[in-house]
Design a protein around this nucleic acid. Structure first.
Lengths: 194, 194
DNA sequence: CCTCAAGTGGTAGTTACTAACACTTTGATA
DNA sequence: TATCAAAGTGTTAGTAACTACCACTTGAGG
């Protein structure tokens, strides 16, 4: 059920994020105040905070919330963990299909790479993703040793993936993102990953 | 040359960090104001900011600044990268020898695991460490492909190391930290790492 | 002893963010 | 259709992290 109210809400959210990104790119992240963003979107400052609890969230929030964790639990259980996790990560990157979505992702990532506060938040988000991966693979009440191992491997996969994201942002998205992630994983796990 | 002035400076820094950590542990990070820390240390708020530019730095700053990057460039160049980087990371953890240093490290890490803002900053610091590793291994003007590979591998090693740190903090430092890091790396790279 | 620079304190500001209250609009029900 | 509860928005006043600026004290070196 997509009521008028929910559609308006989604529209305001989108408008706010796009105006914020525009101003961040034009004037810099630190130089842009929340009041300026509110004004640019034609709403009050409070409304911005209602939609995005912090300034960082204006960049971090992903409209499409991809993260295909689902794919993980359905992947063949006898595959090596590195391969299962890696393919899920590549698949997530493949979700950004439309040019519009891709451009938005690129603008956000470039900010996340350049601005220290955003970079930190982004890394913490990846850490949360790692938790989700471990839960998807190990269930709610796993064997501690197995969980430790799964956590280490997913941490390593995300660490490798991250540098692919940074490289993609730094080169203005010229290369194919899923391929970049694939290359980073192959460089790290030449045996397990093909 | 350790003049009186420099010694006083170092003492004030230590005092400030220890008082801050004490208050953070007692009252919580967000609940503790910079003014309260200044008061507890018997200085003005301005002085706190002179020594630690942000509140986060009170926890992040490491008196001993270990990070034995030096060891990297002196490790045998024909060893696999995973082994070279891994051993350097373990060696860094081994630097925390005295009980005092260890307790301080544990208190700081526990805050870094629990408090989102600190967790994010810590991850960003690890990212900076990754840069230092890549520079130490590849030099200043490396071959792009080789740099990409090195970056991916060190990202993966740090990702695996991070979960060892988190596990150590969560279990109140009961286990041997270098061993934990070793285990995480072994779980991730069973072939390259022994 | 004198001078200079480093360290410290005070004040006034900016800005992200919160709490509390009033007002408007929307969606569903009598 | 009239009405009412809930969701969304605005306003105001406040807190706390951080900065810029200026004045003061104290240690280092000639």
């Amino acid at each position: 059920m997509s009521s008028l109210r929910e559609r308006r809400k989604a529209e305001t959210r989108q408008l706010l994020q796009r105006q914020a990104l525009r101003l961040f790119q034009r004037d810099g992240y630190d130089q842009t105040t929340m009041n300026a963003i509110a004004e640019a979107a034609g709403v009050s400052a409070m409304t911005v905070y209602r939609h995005f609890p912090t300034k960082e969230d204006l960049v971090i929030w992903d409209e499409y919330t991809p993260v295909s964790i689902e794919a993980l639990s359905h992947s063949p259980a006898d595959d090596p963990l590195v391969r299962r996790i890696g393919h899920a990560l590549i698949q997530t990157a493949n979700a950004a299909t439309t040019p519009d979505h891709r451009d938005l992702l690129l603008a956000r990532l470039q900010l996340m790479v350049e601005v220290p506060a955003l970079r930190a938040r982004h890394l913490d988000n990846q850490y949360a993703t790692q938790d989700a991966i471990v839960t998807a693979l190990c269930g709610d009440d796993p064997d501690p040793d197995q969980e430790f191992q799964t956590r280490a491997i997913s941490g390593a996969c995300l660490g490798a993936t991250h540098i692919a994201l940074v490289h993609w942002a730094r080169t203005d998205g010229k290369q194919h993102l899923p391929t970049l992630i694939h290359d980073a994983l192959t460089a790290t796990f030449p045996a397990d990953f093909t």
